[in-house]
Amino acid sequence: MDQLYLPITLVLAAAAIIRIPTVIRQPHARPAWFATALAMLALMTRGSLIPIQTLDAWLGDQNLIFLVQCWLATFAFWVMCEAAGADTRRERRASLRLWIPSTWCVVFTVPFFLIQGRKGTDLFFIDAHLGEPSAIVCGILYMLGITGSCGRLLVTLRGRPAAAHWFFRIGASCVVVASLLWCASIVIAAHQTPIDWMGTCFDSLFYPGVVIMALGLVTFAIQRQARRITMQRRVSQLRAILSRNDVIAPDPEQELPLVVFDLLVRIKDARTIGLVSPTIAEAKVIAHATAWVDRAFPQIASLSTANGASS
């Protein structure tokens, strides 16, 4: 699996660089970008660009590079899952609550510093210290944190039928299975001969799972941009209908879905009092916009239904 660290790191780096203009313009894209950058840095601690021995030497040659890797990976998975959850809930911006991964990092850092003989860099640090219970506890706690982040995302995705959600389902499932398999493997290896196929399965599931989840974030970014373009087109079409009938449509300072909803309400009111008589083509635009709002933003549709009932 070592030979894949570099290409995966380069793919994540390219994704982070390409999305910089979007991140500057759109704050809601920053959590996903942050997660991608953290994942890239976490893979770099595996020696994908700079030898791991060199990195650890910079930190005092005490295997602290392993701890840094665990910190970065913990934050990367948490932020990635929170960003994905915000996309599935159509939230404008993810609520990251970084105190949660920070607390968990403290939890597995304590047993790390209880491990004896950390002098010298080990590529597979936990495997090299399986004789010490503190090493096993440290490794299991670290992996359980990642499992918890991905498991929480899987719960969030329940009942979400969109095809893009399957990137997260497949990727997070791979990571959960790989993490639990790794925990079982180090417990077994501490008491008997290591089982090689478990390590192979971990590599075959964990890192592809990370890539699949990153693809899910990219897919949602594309979908979000497509929704924005669709909303802007709807707004332009609905404004044109009001303008043709000499009805003033002010520029409200609110989210585009609410602008579409507001324009539909204005057109409905104007039709009621006879100010707007849409053509056949305009009637289709209104019908399509209404159906789109009902389908894409059910919370607005429910508001519309409530208003209709109250009137």
Rank of each mutant, 00 (worst) to 15 (best):
I100Q: 08
W78G: 00
P257G: 09
L258F: 14
F75A: 10
R118M: 03
H191I: 13
A189N: 11
L55G: 03
P208F: 07
L98E: 06
F168Q: 06
T230L: 14
W182M: 14
R169A: 08
G85K: 05
R160E: 14
L49A: 12
A287S: 10
E253D: 10
S277Q: 11
A309G: 05
V285T: 11
T200R: 14
G209M: 03
L275H: 13
R30C: 02
P111H: 08
R234T: 04
A163Q: 04
I212P: 02
A296P: 00
M80A: 12
W197L: 15
F77C: 06
V259M: 10
P51D: 15
Q192W: 08
S243M: 03
A189F: 13
A287G: 02
T109N: 05
R228I: 07
A172K: 02
Y5T: 01
S102Q: 01
T9C: 09
F261I: 00
G145D: 04
S149M: 02
L6C: 07
I248A: 14
P133K: 12
G117Q: 12
I229F: 14
P278K: 10
W33G: 08
R160Y: 13
M1Y: 05
A83V: 05
V285F: 08
T103I: 08
M143L: 15
C70L: 05
L6Q: 10
H129V: 01
A84Y: 11
L72D: 04
H191K: 13
A42W: 14
F202W: 08
F297S: 13
A16I: 01
G151W: 13
S277W: 08
Q299Y: 13
I300L: 15
I146Q: 09
T147C: 15
A301S: 04
T22S: 07
W71P: 00
P298D: 06
I280N: 15
R89I: 00
S48Q: 11
Q232M: 03
I186P: 01
P133S: 12
V235L: 11
R158Y: 15
D251K: 13
V265I: 13
T200H: 14
C105N: 00
D87W: 05
R93P: 00
G47Q: 13
T272A: 15
P21E: 06
V155Q: 12
G274K: 03
R118T: 09
I146W: 04
I140C: 04
R118W: 08
L41F: 04
P252H: 05
R234N: 05
H191S: 14
A270L: 04
T156Y: 06
R19M: 09
A240V: 06
A76D: 02
H165S: 09
R93N: 05
A296L: 08
I24S: 00
V176F: 07
R97A: 09
I140W: 07
L258W: 15
P278M: 11
T54A: 11
P7I: 03
F167I: 10
V265A: 13
V259T: 11
Q225G: 10
L6D: 06
L242C: 09
V265T: 12
L67K: 07
Q69T: 00
L43G: 01
M213G: 06
L275Q: 14
A128L: 01
Q232W: 01
L10Y: 10
A135V: 06
I186N: 03
V68T: 09
A214Q: 07
A178M: 06
I24A: 01
I140D: 09
L67I: 00
G139N: 12
E82Y: 00
T156D: 08
M198K: 05
L141P: 00
F112G: 07
